[in-house]
Design a protein around this nucleic acid. Structure first.
Lengths: 236, 236
DNA sequence: GACACATCGTGTACGGTAGACACATGCCGG
DNA sequence: CCGGCATGTGTCTACCGTACACGATGTGTC
């Protein structure tokens, strides 16, 4: 960038380092997506602007449009890369429940590595095959449980929705308390108006500070288990 | 608005209708919020820009800043007004479950009237007292169930998260099928890659087309019921 | 009744966003 | 050698939220 005299000196010395060293490697979709992902991981999806990505790659923002059609497409590519490949659940023994537990944990871990994924995968949009692959294996884990197709789909949607809700501060609803279980001061200052919330905050046990992740996971799986038990009974 | 000759005629006639009829009613927070809500109800929260709201009220956008400090504050006012007052659950008989069922239904209905609420209530922000009131009554419905404070809060959060996930197309995760249960064509074209999804889509029963709302609600409540049953047993 | 002042709406400006489009440059095949 | 095509640049438009100076207007006080 800086075009001062020192640069020419560096250029001379760099001649020793080998031939054909490109000053600027050519732009590819991959490099663009990687740069955008770095930004998103660090500063969130809102920090991903064409300008920011372009600056990081030392090009103008319009250069990016030679490789991606729109920002939405860029985000789609980022997402499809970041979600990775779903876990292989076929080798997991013990039926549908351990499989879904592993699946949920893996998904949660992936989303923790890339906290912007929930925001990027909300709303209607084009979905990539790898992302769909996650749904595929989860629905597959529920085959043979007696649930019909719609139920298997709904169960997986319920589970992934829970991950979304507990994982991302940007897509989750606002909680009355903060992450460390400290009640909103506006509430604790008005115990007569919000008695149940104040009482609940006063009697918090040693629950894990995971934004309700573990709690919800067990409740959902228990609920699904109950339905499956009913189906097996009616079938027999 | 139009400043043509017909207007003066109307003005003359209007003299009969009473004194002090203001051509433009003065701007108030209420009128601004109402206009913004109308826009959001019709075209979504993204259509709510200061410019659009101002145009609707026939003022410049900067005039709005005399009454609201920022757009975030405007959205907060809109939300607090739109959520309304929570239902009175104390009169509902039959224990926690019918109470929470009614609560969830009422919340869902409110959110259906204003589909932008999920998007407006996501992320960290200032929460209004009426909105917190909804959480208050739901947590209150779980008192006396044996759940500790954190569990009562987590249960309500789980439930409202489910409403959010099934209610708003903008905050929900993308489903492999559309609202009418038609599988994404990208999936149905590749049955060898997504066998479980194709199989599930083929065996959909007469499940309600409610985006998994009813399914998830029952599963979650069943899961909570199981936990409550455990607590009662250990207590006794 | 005049005048100062507070309130409220206007107009202009700034930095940010996504993206359309014309132009330059450099590489590669004939 | 040379023409064409791919790729990156520069400029422009239409938005977004919001800071700030200005003018009009209505109101309370002397």
């Amino acid at each position: 960038m800086t075009d001062d005299g020192t640069n020419s000196g560096e250029l001379l010395w760099d001649l020793d380092e080998g031939p054909a060293r490109k000053a600027r490697p050519t732009l590819t979709v991959d490099r663009i997506a990687k740069a955008a992902t770095t930004i998103a991981d660090a500063d969130g999806l809102t920090a991903v602007s064409m300008q920011n990505v372009a600056t990081k790659l030392d090009v103008t923002k319009m250069a990016l449009y030679r490789h991606v059609a729109s920002k939405a497409e860029l985000v789609a590519v980022m997402t499809e890369t970041a979600v990775g490949t779903p876990p292989n659940l076929k080798e997991i023994r013990g039926g549908w429940r351990p499989k879904l537990e592993l699946w949920a944990q893996e998904m949660r871990r992936t989303w923790q590595r890339h906290p912007w994924i929930p925001a990027a995968t909300a709303g209607s949009r084009v979905t990539g095959p790898r992302e769909i692959g996650w749904t595929e294996v989860a629905v597959g884990a529920l085959e043979g449980t007696g649930l019909d197709g719609a139920e298997r789909m709904d169960a997986v949607f319920l589970l992934s929705g829970h991950i979304r809700n507990t994982q991302s501060p940007t897509t989750a609803g606002t909680q009355p308390w903060s992450l460390d279980r400290t009640l909103n001061p506006m509430i604790s200052a008005r115990p007569e108006r919000f008695p149940s919330l104040v009482a609940a905050a006063a009697s918090v046990g040693n629950a894990p500070k995971d934004n309700g992740w573990e709690f919800g996971l067990i409740r959902i799986l228990d609920g699904i288990a109950k339905l499956i038990a009913t189906r097996r009974r009616t079938k027999a």
